[in-house]
Write a protein that binds this DNA or RNA. Sequence first.
RNA 1: GGGCUCUUAGCUCAGUUGGUUAGAGCGCCACGUUUACACCGUGGAUGUCGGGGGUUCGAAUCCCUCAGGGCCCA
Length: 869
Amino acid sequence: MSSPASIPDKPALEGLEAKWGETWESAGVYRFDRTGRTRGDIYSIDTPPPTASGSLHIGHVFSYTHTDVIARFQRMLGKTVFYPMGWDDNGLPTERRVQNYYGVRCDPTLPYEPGFVPPFEGGDNKSSKAADQQPISRRNFIELCERLTVEDEKQFEAVWRILGLSVDWTQTYRTIGDDARAASQKAFLRNLARGEAYQADAPTLWDVTFRTAVAQAELEDRVQPGFYHRIAFTRPDGGQIEIETSRPELLPSCVALVAHPDDERYKPLFGTTVTSPVFGVEVPVLAHHLAQADKGTGIAMICTFGDVTDVVWWRELDLPNRAVIGFDGRFSGEAPAAITSDFGRDAYAQLAGKTVFSAKQTVVELLRSTGELLEDPKPVQHPVKFFEKGDRPLEIVSTRQWYITNGGRDPQLRERLIELGTEIDFLPDFMRVRYENWVRGLAGDWLVSRQRFFGVPLPVWYRVDADGNPLFEEFIVPDESTLPIDPSSDVPPGYTEDQRGAAGGFIGELDVMDTWATSSLTPQLAGGWDRDDELWNLVFPYDLRPQGQDIIRTWLFSTALRSLLEEGVKPWSHASISGFIVDPDRKKMSKSKGNVVTPAAMLEQHGSDAVRYWAASSRLGTDAAFDPQNPTQIRIGRRLAIKILNAAKFILGFDAETAAAIPAGRAAVTHPLDWSMLTTLDAVVATATTALTEYDHARALETTEQFFWNFCDDYLELVKERAYGTAGGEDGGQASAIAALRDALSTLLRLFAPFVPFATEEAWSWFADGSVHTVPWPVPGDVPESADAQLLTLASEALITIRRAKTDAKASQKTRVAQATIVGPLAQVELLQLAEADLRAVGRIEELGFGPGDALAVTHIELIPNEEL
RNA sequence: GGGCUCUUAGCUCAGUUGGUUAGAGCGCCACGUUUACACCGUGGAUGUCGGGGGUUCGAAUCCCUCAGGGCCCA
């Protein structure tokens, strides 16, 4: 970046990443300098913070390259680009990684152990058994989380730097960092103050492995094998009602039977009662429209709680709660009070303490013994709800949890969110539908409390009454100025530590927030919300939110929600959605399928420019197939990057002395063919600029690339003799060619710069000062009236015809031609004659004639045999 | 079951508001070592635009329908 460097004899891509990465960093090329800027000067990006505990895969490279191309384009347009990087390090994935990496697990009841050394380091990140993990205190556990994420983040940053992301590395944040915790807690407290956050004791989807509540956005259905059990309930008159259930173990928690209100078979029974088998509990028969007449026997039992429909029925039909499953996924020791018969209580005693699995077997045996299992269980495949990161079916337990309103129970808020979506330019546009579908399908408010450890603590305490019982409705909040806080170690205002847990004192909330509750605030975290007002006003609302399509329901939605609640406006004007990478069998790459490709080796093997080319060739929203064994697009990208270096070297090598005397730009251009090329290039500039402005990076790249290959294959060949100065004749012909070539080179390097930043920077350094990445994006230049793009096209066609004649004769392209005639429509031939000398030179034609004809063609070509050379 | 999306050359993909004979790259075949490039150059062959129906002077493009792939939601 100092004075122009000498051009290597043999340009190569190897080493460019390290060379330019260091130069860019030390020169601060991508630094966000807000001095004197106004909002209109800024282009701000709400970068996705990768999960620090995960591993980067080729899909990350794909989508982050899309963003970087836009960032570089906007920077060259003259915008000051706010392009920060965050690390999403809080949350369950980190906890799991720490457990496996260090062989530990968190037990909050244990005391802190200073100077703790974990059993080992560098576990293989495969799941290890809990029994093999050493229990440690929460504080020790969090220290290990902190230690490992810092290490992981260094490795991530190294990959991003090699890839050439034009991030300002002084603008980084961590979702577990002090500022992030403070902002997350502050936003929650403001939700609370405005009535948007609340706590409720309610049936909650619960993962028994991780022992935490989970939210709707974290659910997934998995088809599981199961059995339908046909069971008999008894009517007061002794008659039977048959139901089918996949969860007979929940029979002791049965609170009603339910059928569809229009179901003629059961209409007479509505309002009557029946008695449950084995446990002998009398329950009502009720009507509800969610009961499916065509499923099983058409009548179902309602238990507390087998699935989310049970919860709806329980709530809407105002039924009692007879929950039997505890937080550990086992049956509680005490039978529901409704079971009063000795037989029923004995039966329940056999279930107490059992897992769902073994309780099911026990209940089935009991039903067989009483003859109330009417037939052998029928195997079925049915969808079961799982926590997306879990591997045991979710249970539903009643617990006190914190919620944030999200429109799931508020039609007005829901409509505002949908309206907000219409104000955002989704790229591609159809992705908005996924957002709208999600908003419309919300079944309840957002459950944000998690019974985990490595997260942002919910910033509340609870008063304890005179008898030592916590008063959850009488919560205490900290002053904003004290954030971030940890209520399990910090003391609420007006209390002292010795009052913790004491009668008349307080207790701290132990739960942490859903990781999305923090990452939904990435615009705030990165943009200095309520911490750096000047920055915030410069970047918010952001220009761009790039992300993957798989997290529209989580990250995109929750960010839009928090922005609406906190600021009342959309968080960004554009949301660009990248597709994902599929393997050659069109299967999505994922860790569980074992088809993940890690980027570091790819970048090392092929070079960053090559990998970026591959990524940038795909449009937003489309999935890209990738075969690591045969990375065709990457090879093409590598070829392009090398070609850029070679072409630049070639162009800069033409008579350097003459070139030095030629003014930069187009002042010395006189030849019609040169003008033809430049006006064609101007059209490419216009197309590429429009495409990038519309976030169609693939089109910009394709257009530029196509021009570039034609430029090299035809124009460069046509003018090289003239540029060498060996063609002779025309006045200023050499200067014109050299000036046009240099002007085109400058333009092409800038057009390619967002896509292949390393090769373009290298070539730029051979003749110009400063970085190509901070020079102005090209604009179409001045051309004379007479400039005609058609001329270059015709000359290329003529050249191809001449080449074909030589190829057909199995002759070398440098074979001389004694005589040739080009025929074609008069206007074309007249135009083409303007390039006669260049055509003769490239074709080594001694005598070139022109004549009339229907279409452009070469006739009467007369090769001079080899031996006469 | 619902929503979205895709199906174009052997492969990966372009194809704009409907408009001549549907394109590119890779791969393949032939030729060529031309003073930037063998990580190269030149040229060539390659299609029932998933199937069917409709609208139109004209359909890869618009509409209907069917089939298949993918993602998300139930």
